[in-house]
Amino acid sequence: MPDLAIIVPSLLNGLTTGALYALIALGLTLIYGVLHIINFAHGALLMVGLYAVWFLNTRLGIDPYVALLIVPPAMFVLGYGLQRGIIGRASHGRDENILLVTLGLSIVIENLALYFFRSDTRIVDTPYSFETVEFLGAFLPLPKVIAFFGALISAAALWLVMSKTDLGRAIRAIARERKGAQLVGINADHVYAMSFGLGIACLGVAACLLLPSYYVTPSVGHGFVLIAFTIVVLGGMGSFVGALIGGLIIGVVEALGGLFLGESLGQIGIFVIFILVLMFRPQGLLGHKV
């Protein structure tokens, strides 16, 4: 039985970790939730973002938080290009092909990273890596506190883009009724690529906020993909607020599962919740009826 005194710090920690998961899931909820693309390359692209942040920091001395100005836009361009040039073209609109193309891409990206960066574990050393914030008797690592607020801001920003801009309206129109949207003059390929780019840009944000408390290797993305899909479904496909709440829930479930079932078996909690949600509320916590 775990010590009661550590439940509060553990919960708070679960929330900050969950916020990091939510950041990764935000991009996915746009790509998977809105466009219904099961993007197997999501983890590999997160890894690209992490290497970009690492590279900027160790070679050019750019702080990971300053890299927020560089990495997300670059990732946007990468995402746009990938969707327009490869995924959209190769998939011929068939789900199984999208799946294979993104799988193929992830193999390519990971192994190119292995070739260029080797398989060493890379970290960044920042002055605040070991800083903590004391809150309710818990020492919260400063980078994770920043990531927590970063996740809130990102979710809000995405929600604004989707509901207040022409692009957002076009994305939603395409998602709902592709043929109809094209009839009223929306360039579907462009909108798909914009959404994909936006989703990948979110990964860029996640990478900047994650690296100060994590590491990067060519296969680092694997550890986050499944979690991200879980969060997207849990929160409701395409719901940004849902993804945020879903991320926080998963973070807390993981923390408590680890505490009560042990860190290894505790991982099971995430999947059990996932299965139960799919069975009894497949539209997710905040999604619309499917």
Binding site: A90, L100, N111, L112, Y115, S119
Partner: peptide, 22 residues
């Protein structure tokens, strides 16, 4: 035996196969 390159090519061929044999 350059680590990575042969698997990267394998992945690329996968994409190409899907592209031309939907």
């Amino acid at each position: 035996d350059v680590p990575g390159i042969s698997l990267a090519l394998y992945g690329a061929l996968l994409v190409v196969m899907v592209m031309f044999m939907p």
